[in-house]
């Protein structure tokens, strides 16, 4: 071919930022980072109420935090809740988004509106309503009900990225191409559609993870002490010892980051083409 259409990548022109731009960005970063940095410092401070910087530093609060009997249990519960939510969310959302983009295109506007609803309903109302409606064993106040509630609550975070990724590929034509080569619906989904929307699935999973891992209201109202999660423990300790609570927060941040990296790593490792696909966009 004479004119290979090389993918063009925009090269940003280097322009020196103006003074006020630097100030604006610095103020923004300060605003965003101050609470986090303070939490980190507070978790290792001996006493920090009479001076600008702490009077001394210690790892004592971390040791006490790790020694807390509930530490491992709540951490495990939070991870179970997050993982289960991601799994259920994927199973519900991915096929739905696929059908809506290929066969039932008329339902897409409806789904788009439905996916804003969780933002509109206050969490407390959602939790209390669910507790009322599903007040039958074995669902009543069970972790299963909690997972169901959290899936609904976090659904927009999964739906948006997955839907956007599906929009970016021509799902119908790719499906038909797969079918004409002998693939059935499951093969089309697993070998063609899912690998191509993997970036969307990954970012959706990350958003859902970070939302659910830090979820407090639903957990406390639906299951309470029966299935204690990490945020519950954290809130409990803010009333007992602020420094230990800070140490818990740091642990929480760290886990969230580690899991994010893990999900990204697993995702790109599992699909060689995914990085290429991401780069191509």
């Amino acid at each position: 071919m004479k004119n290979p259409q090389k993918p063009l990548r925009e090269t940003n022109k280097k322009v020196r930022p103006a003074g006020w731009q630097i100030v604006a960005v610095a103020l923004f970063l300060f605003y965003m980072l101050l609470p986090i940095v303070s939490t980190y410092i507070f978790s290792v401070a001996t006493r920090w109420d009479r001076t600008i910087l702490p009077e001394g530093y210690t790892l004592e609060f971390y040791i006490r935090a790790f020694q807390t009997s509930y530490f491992i249990i709540t951490l495990r519960n939070s991870l179970i809740l997050s993982a289960a939510t991601i799994l259920v969310s994927l199973i519900v959302i991915v096929p739905t988004v696929y059908w809506v983009h290929t066969r039932l295109t008329g339902f897409k506007p409806l789904l788009d509106v439905l996916m804003i609803l969780p933002f509109g309903i206050p969490t407390v109302v959602l939790a209390l309503a669910l507790v009322q409606v599903y007040n039958v064993p074995p669902l009543a106040r069970s972790p299963i009900l909690l997972i169901g509630a959290v899936v609904v609550y976090s659904m927009p975070f999964m739906y948006r990225p997955v839907s956007n990724a599906m929009q970016a590929i021509d799902a119908l034509t790719l499906t038909e191409a797969g079918q004409s080569l002998g693939a059935n619906v499951f093969q089309v989904l697993s070998k063609i559609i899912i690998p191509n929307i993997l970036p969307g699935i990954l970012s959706g999973s990350l958003l859902v993870f970070s939302t659910v891992f830090a979820e407090y209201t639903l957990t406390s109202l639906i299951v309470g002490a029966k299935f204690k999660t990490f945020p519950l423990l954290l809130v409990e300790y803010t009333r007992i010892n602020g420094n230990i609570a800070a140490a818990f927060s740091v642990v929480s941040f760290t886990i969230a980051w580690l899991v994010s990296i893990l999900i990204l790593w697993v995702g790109t490792k599992g699909q060689n083409g995914a990085t290429e696909t991401i780069q191509a966009r």
Partner: peptide, 15 residues
């Protein structure tokens, strides 16, 4: 067992 070529190529981008 019928092959098809599409206007939009429809190659699988991940492969």
């Amino acid at each position: 067992d019928i092959g098809m070529v599409f206007q939009a190529y429809a190659l699988f981008p991940n492969m």
